[in-house]
Design a protein around this nucleic acid. Structure first.
Length: 383
DNA sequence: GTAGGGTTAG
């Protein structure tokens, strides 16, 4: 059963739910009884696709027919999905019913709920929930502290967050690297780059080891503080393991200030360090090239990202820029180029997206309708 | 290495 469950987990993680169901059927045929470890990943698979109704149906089936009722982990998966959908009343309902349904909310349940509230701007309610949780005798974990600090940062109570960090030395509220990263990230966002450096020294003094994320926040902070050369030497001296985020941060910064030779150096450093560029790298290039009016180069950059097997998400960014600059021939040329290259499919979703972006840019007005028509012709493959 | 859940960076 653990072999089958592992396989089902893997299939669900990559969104191959029909095959996961196939494996489930197969194990039933073999007389191998599924357990809660087998069903929960499928529940999560539905949740990830936003099919919360189907997830709940499956949980009802587990309870009534399969003789393996959902447990706290299954409920936590469902609660995460309900939070993402903003259905907080349903979550509260689940918690009040938990006793009769035979499961007990855990620290993870409360962490999930508090984080969900915080993500939707309900930091205050999250802090109330913290009180409820402590009242039940549940001990906070390092996750709880990070979620709580995130809540405080979003509620613009950053000084409260810093106060907690400074005092968090007890084992009950231990501030680890993630806790520091949370507050440092928020300070960086607000432009308080000196505060970021202060926390970096604090954490090192306390014996909390910074990780790559920490350094990436520090690097961005140094850039904001106009200490780009310090940022660059931190990377060059290999004081930490730089990754694609590190390079994207620096590339965006130098590109923004039009220091293209620096961008070139960074790209060759990446190649030398065997760090592959990703969607974000290409997005930086496309956005910056469009800003400088270099739409042809931006388009070829997008096509290159497709050749490298990256997703279509960047097309929305590019089309948006083209639409707002009224670049219809360039848009049509992208379709032609995509048609010419094998394996690149032009489907309705691409056309929907294009029309939507052009309309939003004002092209649904009568006087521009012939311009839209030329795009429609290109979609139909007419010259 | 030991089947499923919760946090942070571009």
């Amino acid at each position: 059963v653990s072999t089958y469950s592992t396989l089902i987990t893997g299939l669900c993680r990559v969104g191959r739910l029909p095959e996961a169901w196939g494996v489930l059927e197969c194990m039933l045929e073999q007389g191998c009884r599924p357990m809660v470890h087998t069903y929960t990943p499928i529940v999560q698979g539905y949740c990830r696709e936003g099919r919360v109704g189907e997830a709940m149906d499956l949980m009802a089936m587990m309870e009534k027919c399969a003789g393996c009722p959902p447990n706290v982990v299954t409920y936590n998966v469902l609660i995460r999905a309900l939070c993402d959908a903003g259905q907080f009343n349903e979550v509260k309902q689940l918690l009040t019913e938990s006793r009769t349904k035979g499961w007990t909310p855990s620290i993870v349940t409360y962490n999930t709920f508090m984080n969900g509230l915080c993500q939707k701007g309900k930091a205050k309610e999250a802090l109330v929930l913290l009180g409820v949780m402590l009242g039940k005798g549940l001990d906070p974990t390092d996750f709880t502290l990070s979620i709580l600090l995130n809540c405080l940062c979003h509620a613009s109570r950053i000084s409260h967050a810093r106060y907690l960090l400074e005092r968090s030395t007890s084992s009950r509220w231990y501030a680890g690297v993630v806790a520091y990263n949370t507050v440092m990230g928020r300070l960086c966002e607000m432009g308080h780059w000196r505060g970021v450096l202060k926390l970096l020294t604090d954490m090192i003094k306390k014996g909390v080891m910074p990780n790559t994320r920490t350094f990436n926040i520090v690097i961005r902070s140094l850039c904001i503080g106009r200490k780009c050369s310090a940022a660059k030497s931190l990377v060059c001296n290999k004081g930490f393991a730089a990754n694609v985020v590190t390079y994207n941060t620096l590339i965006d910064w130098f590109f923004y200030h039009r220091k293209l030779s620096e961008v070139g150096h960074l790209l060759s450093d990446m190649a030398a360090g065997k760090i592959a560029v990703d969607e974000v790298t290409y997005t930086i290039f496309v956005v910056r090239l469009c800003r400088d009016g270099n739409f042809a180069k931006a388009s070829s950059c997008f096509l290159k990202s497709l050749e490298n097997g990256l997703s279509m998400d960047l097309l929305g960014v590019l089309i948006n820029r083209l639409a707002y600059s009224g670049k219809i021939p360039e848009t049509i040329r992208i379709f032609q180029n995509m048609r010419e290259r094998k394996g690149l499919s032009l489907d309705n979703s691409i056309f929907d997206l294009t029309i939507e972006r052009f309309c939003r840019a004002g092209y649904c007005h009568d006087k521009y309708i012939h311009n839209l028509n030329s795009i429609l012709d290109a979609m139909l493959g007419k010259q």
